[in-house]
Design a protein around this nucleic acid. Structure first.
Length: 644
DNA sequence: GCCGTTTTCGGCCCGACTGTTTTCAGTCG
């Protein structure tokens, strides 16, 4: 069963203020919102904690500074009460009454609300009436028919919970972006071939390109007279494991692995980790919700189910301010609809032939789905300053890739060949340094072998040049940032590389240390003159482990200062689908502090190179334009940046 | 618990679906 990881109030590792970091408080406030729901608190109080967590997470300034100067209260979403609580947490290390809340609500209830169809109210009732406080306990209670006999519950609820528990075990919640997109695009392509289907689009978190996807949402348009036929054809498609529900306009399905047309396996990190991920993918199913609507409703339904929830709330508020009502059926003037609701009111909707016209009616420019998170995009769309987001076709190369010289599957020539096939102008090789040990032995390139690799690359480049081909291979290293903040290899060896990608691999050491200690070590590595790129900055592996604690804001600020001093200090968006590290929120922060970004597939095989597309997705979520991303520079400019 | 060109109280986005009841609460997106 899904374990609740990192639950509870953290213990401070500090002896003086700040006792806790912004990230720790953000996590606790998210958890408090869940606990308050389970405790039956006022829903608006719950929302206040959710909003405060969001607000803190998006702070650009240092939390300790803001608290010290009593400026936190100026942040929208943080009022008198929470500003004073945060001050106590940061300055004194005291969490007020939050500890009591954790003690009061059994952690098992938190797992229980992960069961589809079981929310906080009913979880609480089950706890109070039956003493059920865990998923396993609920399973037993259902099997003994105790749940069906409760007031307000019944046989169907009981069965739904049992099915939900089973689904949780098989499905394990969310899917990685690459896997979710694989299912989603395959399903979209199949539906698009059904006669009578006019349009079909992926909506939901897949369209917004979140790092992980809960379930798939698709919106289909068809003329009213064809809709029932289209629904029948969708239900008859191959690869459907189960139909959870099917009505006049909505279908809910569970898809089998066989829906995936292409194999989604990608490059490898290390054998055991990669096996864990592949096993997970093969067991997994994914849920899909499909809505079939008439063509005039399609843009409204698509926008509505693309979300996010937070973005939709802002959109509806803007509609209200203009005397309009916005929902999945249309955009209706309040004056015309009177008491009509839902689909009956939609007859009075303003006509919008696509999403951009909906935005225009609300005084906004169209917002790309990737930006729809209520993370400033509404304000930008209002002032016509939505950026021109980077496209995957603008990528001309990437600098972080492995070969058989360390733990890659393909040779230098094979990797370069695939890069050229993709239309790239260059590829950077960055094999591991000797400090990285897997299975008791070093898998890195020792200093003698570095010299050999350098001459291989030199002769490859000479051969290219002789053939009049401008394609280049750059010789770099993925050089370990050691726990003390020094870089692997000695200064002379590091000086021979075109680029040095500094990465943390001793995860256990870094995970058990204080955030500021890690931050100082990372900054010290970055300050080394040979250092050019920060590799997979937070060390997270999606669905496997969280990153180590580090204050990326401090790191990014220091990198920005060093760039001002004439160095190249870039930060990597690791595009490998099991990492997708950096977080998209930090992309904007880096750009705003003058730190160039680099989308790196971290490919361990030729197939892995095309993973840059997932990095582009994250870069787009992070508001990046082509000019913010080094990969879009022509090879001559990359050559100059790396010192010729 | 937050917020205010309806500013210190009374709001806080909107609607469908489900299962349980027979008018509605809970859940979901």
């Amino acid at each position: 069963m899904a374990k609740v990881i990192g639950w509870g109030i953290p213990k401070s590792k500090r002896s003086k203020a700040p006792f806790y970091t912004k990230n720790q408080i953000v996590t606790v406030f998210d958890q408090v919102a869940i606990l308050l729901e389970l405790d039956g608190a006022n829903v608006f109080r719950v929302r206040a904690y959710q909003n405060a967590s969001r607000a803190l997470g998006q702070l650009e300034k240092d939390l300790f500074d803001l608290v010290s100067e009593d400026l936190l209260i100026q942040t929208k979403g943080i009022g008198k009460g929470l500003a004073s609580l945060v001050k106590d947490i940061v300055m004194e290390g005291h969490w007020g009454k939050l500890g009591e809340l954790y003690d009061k609500v059994p952690t098992g209830l938190v797992e229980m609300v992960g069961i589809p169809g079981l929310g906080p109210k009913r979880a609480r009732t089950l706890f109070e009436e039956l003493g059920v406080s865990s998923v396993d306990g609920l399973k037993i209670a259902c099997e003994e028919n105790l749940v069906a006999e409760l007031q307000g519950f019944g046989a169907k609820s009981q069965k739904k919970y049992l099915d939900g528990i089973d689904l949780l075990r098989r499905n394990q919640g969310r899917s990685r972006l690459d896997i979710g997109l694989g299912f989603g695009i395959a399903l979209r392509n199949r539906i698009s071939k059904i006669p009578g289907v006019m349009e079909v689009e992926l909506a939901g978190s897949a369209r917004r390109r979140k790092e992980t996807i809960g379930d798939l949402d698709l919106v289909v348009s068809a003329a009213p007279e064809n809709q029932s036929g289209v629904i029948g054809s969708i239900l008859g498609l191959p690869g459907i494991a189960d139909v959870k529900g099917a009505g006049g306009s909505k279908i809910s399905l569970i898809l089998e692995q066989s829906v995936l047309v292409s194999d989604s396996s990608r490059g490898k990190l290390d054998k055991s980790l990669s096996e864990a991920i592949i096993n997970r993918a093969q067991d997994s199913t994914i849920d899909a919700q499909i809505r079939v609507v008439s063509p005039e409703m399609f843009p409204f339904t698509l926008a509505y189910f693309t979300g996010s929830k937070e973005h939709n709330i802002r959109m509806r508020q803007l509609a209200i301010e203009r005397g309009l009502r916005l929902n999945e059926f249309g955009l209706m003037p309040e004056s015309l609809i009177g008491d009509l609701i839902g689909i009956n009111a939609a007859a009075h909707s303003l006509i919008c032939k696509d999403e951009s016209q909906i935005y225009n009616h609300l005084g906004l420019d169209w917002v790309a789905p990737e930006l729809r998170e209520d993370n400033g995009e509404i304000e930008a769309a209002m002032s016509k300053s939505i950026p021109n987001l980077i496209e995957v076709t603008e990528i001309r190369g990437a600098l972080h890739n492995h070969t058989t010289a360390s733990d890659g599957q393909n040779t230098l020539e094979e990797m370069a060949g695939e890069a050229r096939r993709l239309g790239w102008e260059y590829i950077g090789i960055a094999d591991h340094s000797p400090a990285l040990r897997i299975g008791g032995r070093s898998i890195g390139v020792d200093p003698d072998a570095v010299e050999i690799q350098a001459s291989e690359i030199e002769s490859f480049n000479r051969k290219m040049a002789d053939q009049g081909d401008a394609f280049r291979v750059f010789h770099g290293s993925e050089c370990d940032i050691l726990p003390d903040g020094k870089l692997d290899y000695n200064e002379d060896v590091r000086g021979t590389f075109h680029h040095v990608i500094g990465s943390v691999h001793a995860i256990n050491t870094w995970k058990s240390r204080d955030e500021q200690v890690n931050t100082d070590a990372m900054i010290s590595a970055i300050e080394d003159p040979s250092f050019t790129v920060l590799g997979h900055p937070t060390g997270r592996v999606l669905q496997v482990r969280e990153g180590f604690p580090v204050d990326m804001l401090q790191v990014i600020k220091r990198m920005g200062e060093l760039n001002g001093d004439g160095y190249l200090k870039a930060i990597e968006i690791n595009a490998s689908p099991y990492r997708l590290d950096l977080d998209w929120r930090l992309c904007r922060t880096a750009r705003d502090h003058g730190v160039p970004l680099l989308i790196n597939p971290d490919a361990h095989s030729v197939e892995g190179l095309s993973d840059v597309s997932y990095g582009v997705d994250i870069a787009r979520k992070g508001w990046l334009e082509a000019k913010d991303v080094l990969n879009t520079l022509p090879v001559e400019e990359i050559d100059q940046l790396l010192g010729g």
